[in-house]
Simulated assay, not measured.
Amino acid sequence: MKTSGKLNRFTDKKKYLFFSQLHSLLKSGLSFSRSFELLIENGSENESGILQSVYNDIISGNALWTALQKSGNFSDLDCGVIRIGEETGRLDQSLEFLNNYYNKKNEQRRILTGALSYPLIILVVAALVVTFMILVVVPMFEQVYSRMGGELPQITRFIIRLSGSAPAFFTIIAILIILFFTVRHFYGKSEKYRRTSAKILLKLPYLGDLFRMYYQSQFCQLMHLLISSNIPLLRSLQMLEDIICFYPFSVSFGNIAKKIIEGGSFGENLAIYENIYSKKLVALIKVGEETNTLDKMLFQQATDITAELEYKLKQLGNVLEPLLILGIGILVAFILIAMYVPMFKLGQTIH
């Protein structure tokens, strides 16, 4: 995604407010210049600076989508959708789309945060407790047992060996994390990195389906906007190739466009990529093509997939919480039992 470091200054929440307010002001009958001036006047210092820069570019003769792109604070999706609106004379529809898109995105983020916040707290606390036990408690027991002498049970010896190798293990983890971020920084935009990372993400249990559904939802929403704006199918696919940058989807748009030129239908070529497009989606798109209701079918699918995605995000939290508690309880119990088994044996011997 072609964004700069400034993107952090213009968050998704701010984008939602910007597109929502601009859409409302234009719909109320105000001119574009007056609407933008009001947004600049009422924004915070940082926001006003960004919007003033965008406004200056527009006055200089640039299109709105070009000015947004030059500012470095808006994503390829933002600029692409605004470009669609400007080229088709439906800027209000594009602003409404982005307003709804960021409203949904922020809502999904709240759902995900609510679903994962408690499990993450549990996981962090558990990691700290287990680390303390491995690095501090286990060595204390080891010193006691070494003075006592005698043969230790196998489970106790295993935990003691694990405690001894823990510093090296944590060092390796730290090196791997640093290596990952270094590779991502230097090669994150390369085709090989994008292809490999996307392949790994899509193969993750459960999470892979969430990624797939998220980009299917984006595809349906954007394709509906393009088709309903009377943009030809081939042109729509070419524009999506630049807007949706997740590698498998981006590649599929270009390849499908080529195959349509050769004589294939949209739905048939979509079915080739069964790893990223569901059978239900492909079937309904075929129906939409045959009945000339493709835009309505895409809109309905965007709504259905988004609703299902939000449901699965809520379910994720409901499933993770008991699994984490159970797993952590078993791990802590295993360490404690391993450390106290020699004590029990000693007690039996004394008895």
Rank of each mutant, 00 (worst) to 15 (best):
N103D: 03
E47L: 14
F219D: 04
R83L: 11
I111R: 09
L237D: 07
R212V: 03
A302L: 01
A283K: 15
A67V: 03
D78N: 12
L30A: 05
F246I: 02
A307R: 06
Y187G: 12
L309T: 04
Y214K: 07
E96S: 14
M239R: 05
P153K: 08
A168V: 10
E310R: 00
S229V: 03
I330T: 03
G149N: 09
I122W: 04
G49C: 13
Y247E: 11
Y247H: 13
L313P: 04
Y214H: 07
L25V: 04
F170S: 09
E268V: 15
S71V: 02
V81M: 08
L30N: 06
M339I: 08
I335V: 12
L30E: 03
V341G: 01
Q143K: 12
K13P: 05
D304W: 05
S252N: 08
F253E: 05
E86L: 14
K286A: 12
I59L: 15
F181L: 14
S265N: 10
K259S: 10
P248G: 00
I40Q: 10
S236Y: 02
I285Q: 01
T303R: 15
K15H: 03
F158E: 12
M343G: 00
F97P: 08
L202Q: 01
S35W: 01
L95M: 08
I40H: 06
S190Y: 00
N56C: 09
V136F: 12
G327L: 01
N230E: 13
I276V: 08
F19K: 08
I330V: 11
Y145D: 09
T3Y: 07
